[in-house]
Write a protein that binds this DNA or RNA. Structure first.
Length: 210
DNA sequence: CCCTGATTCGC
DNA sequence: GCGAATCAGG
């Protein structure tokens, strides 16, 4: 693989967005993070600190008007007006008012991680994470989860990586919120215990009902 | 350990 | 110019 204009452009863009060298390398493919870093340096676009440019030299940054506006995906949940719905703090007993279908996808609003933020804003809100509460879950798994959550690493949004469990714990609307953070099962977004409660075969959950 | 960027230096 | 190896950190 070589540094074609297009690849260089991607590199510049992603680097400017604050993506890490390894992420850029993965995106480009065929190169290692070392290659990316090396290129970054050769291109002269190394340190770019938020706030003020380090004074000294400002050689001649191609002041080309960036054609493309920086696309910022960002989940952007709907503006929340009311207080967060109360959540049972004690999963002691599962009330199970009515069998809620399929939990299994809390991490949806956590997919795009590396975004330079001025201030960590936790999207309080709508897609409430599936606490292992209401559902019928195998007792073993549930017990395991409770146990595991005591040992959770309590990671913040920014600390999550591909190999950390992204199971949300607590109420996103409050400070009392974090992500499990334990080692995730390779290929899965969650750790062993949380995979157990997140991915249930239809048949299994069927049999469990009532 | 996982990860980050920075630097060196043979190619 | 390139990037693996290495360094220096969090």
């Amino acid at each position: 693989m070589s540094w074609t204009d297009e690849r260089v452009e991607t590199l510049k863009k992603m680097w400017a967005e604050g993506q890490s060298a390894s992420q850029i390398a993965k995106e480009l493919g065929g190169v290692t993070r070392n290659a990316v870093i090396g290129k970054v340096h050769r291109l002269g676009l190394s340190n770019r600190v938020g706030g003020g440019a380090v004074e000294g030299d400002e050689p001649e940054v191609a002041a080309q008007p960036a054609p493309a506006a920086p696309p910022r995906p960002e989940p952007a949940p709907k503006p929340v007006a009311a207080e967060a719905p109360p959540r049972a703090a004690a999963p002691e007993r599962a009330p199970a008012p009515e069998p809620r279908p399929a939990p299994a996808a809390p991490a949806a609003n956590v997919t795009a991680l590396p975004i330079p933020m001025r201030k960590a804003i936790i999207p309080a809100g709508q897609p409430l994470p599936p606490q292992p509460s209401a559902n019928e879950i195998s007792p073993e798994a549930l017990a395991s989860v409770r146990e595991v959550e005591k040992r959770a690493k309590r990671l913040t949004l920014m600390e999550l990586t591909e190999r950390t469990c992204k199971w949300p714990i607590g109420d996103p609307a409050t400070e009392d919120f974090w992500f499990c953070g334990l080692p995730s099962v390779p290929g899965k977004p969650y750790c062993e215990a949380h995979v157990g409660v997140a991915f249930q075969p239809m048949s299994a959950r069927r049999d469990r009902r009532r």
